[in-house]
Design a binder for these strands. Structure first.
Lengths: 217, 217
DNA sequence: ATTAATATTTAGGCAAATCTAAAAATTTGT
DNA sequence: ACAAATTTTTAGATTTGCCTAAATATTAAT
């Protein structure tokens, strides 16, 4: 299993998670920052190896085996993110790229010991659930802030975009995991939102709202 | 800098450390478990990039820049080994292969934070010195047990071979870093040694003795 | 229901790192 | 010092993952 193969499986898993049906070649190419022709090549190879179902022009979906591998990589990614934040003083906006490297380290024992060392965390620093060693993922029902209505309340439990740019902006707005949020009003012109966070009232663009998840209360 | 390039630089550094003069292509190939022709190709490329001096048929030696890179990789390797042993319950015979992967993770901050997290260790689990962040290495004068004479005394401070096979054998003999050793006698027939370790008297083959370093006392 | 637009695949190539086999240089042994 | 042995390099292939350009299939629009 090469790094590239692992990255494709991970990306296909994430894309397939939202759209229940098959994943388009172009979507894979875009997520992998490569060309559609490259994605076609790789998808064929992964299909040959039994990690996904593929029919020409019909998109792909992971087999059970492919899903298992993808979930293992996601588990590693998220555990390493916890390690970086909890043990090495990284902030949530600094960990993604390093975890992208660390997730490919091959050692069963390493990841199980790391999990234990961290006290079996359930969430990574962005609020995403950490699959357990059997691949079980405990998901919570979360709602995109951007799809909420005036008066809706909840707690910030996740982000759609884990880029350092976005997360640093959230820091500036004092928006972090666990914060209570209430939608005060929505501006019809541009769908920007007035929200209350703790005692602050702030305005956020629709784009921001569409990258924040809350758990409604 | 690819993984392969980094591994070549590391291997050339280690080979050049013992033999002060230039490193032979065959030696590189053997250490990299590849063919001489592959080593030639890579050496040319690394020379083009300014990491080593190379003259056809005359072997190679690292430039200052090449050495710096090699030392950085060795620093990472040894710090990760410490982490595995001290924080994740690995034993000294289990860490080498995983550290070979981890040493290629690219992040200045990661390695400096890891160093601090571990309390700035000076030695890895095999007794090898950990270069500091500026590349300075504090070496001690160590002697190959196999080159000692009857009556010589010292403390076990390092091993030449970090393979799991060898280290597990040392464990079985209760030979570990820090143990006091005295050479009782040397058998002329096969150069095997009678040594005293603590209160035990054991016999070790010349091959074992030639993979153990002591600091004479 | 055709045509136009879009998505996907194929074909052919490239760079990295490896290999084998053959050629060339160096070293060794007498 | 010269032939033999060894080491090293070159030449030409292979595999992986990517690319561009062209061909083909699917989807959308009128």
């Amino acid at each position: 299993m090469t790094f590239s193969e692992e990255n494709y499986l991970k990306v296909i898993y994430h894309l397939g998670d939202e759209a229940a049906d098959s994943v388009a070649t172009n979507a894979i190419a875009e997520a992998m920052k490569t060309k559609a022709s490259s994605a076609t090549d790789m998808v064929k190879k992964l299909a040959d190896k039994g990690f996904l179902f593929y029919k020409k022009y019909q998109g792909t979906s992971l087999t059970e085996e492919g899903k298992e591998i993808a979930v293992k990589i996601i588990r590693k990614h998220r555990l390493w993110e916890c390690f970086l934040v909890e043990k090495l003083n990284f902030s949530w906006d600094e960990v993604h790229d390093i975890a992208e490297q660390l997730e490919h380290i091959k050692s069963e024992k390493l990841i199980e010991e790391l999990d234990a060392f961290l006290g079996f965390p359930k969430k990574d620093p962005h609020g995403d659930p950490i699959p357990d060693k059997h691949g079980n993922i405990h998901t919570i029902k979360k709602t995109l802030l951007g799809s909420c209505s005036e008066g809706d309340k909840g707690v910030l439990v996740g982000v759609e975009d884990s880029s350092s740019k976005f997360l640093r902006y959230l820091d500036k707005l004092e928006l972090s995991l666990g914060k209570a949020i209430e939608v005060i009003s929505i501006e019809p012109f541009d769908n920007s939102m007035q929200i209350e966070v703790g005692t602050n009232k702030i305005s956020i663009s629709a784009q921001i709202a569409n990258n924040i998840y809350i758990q409604k209360t």
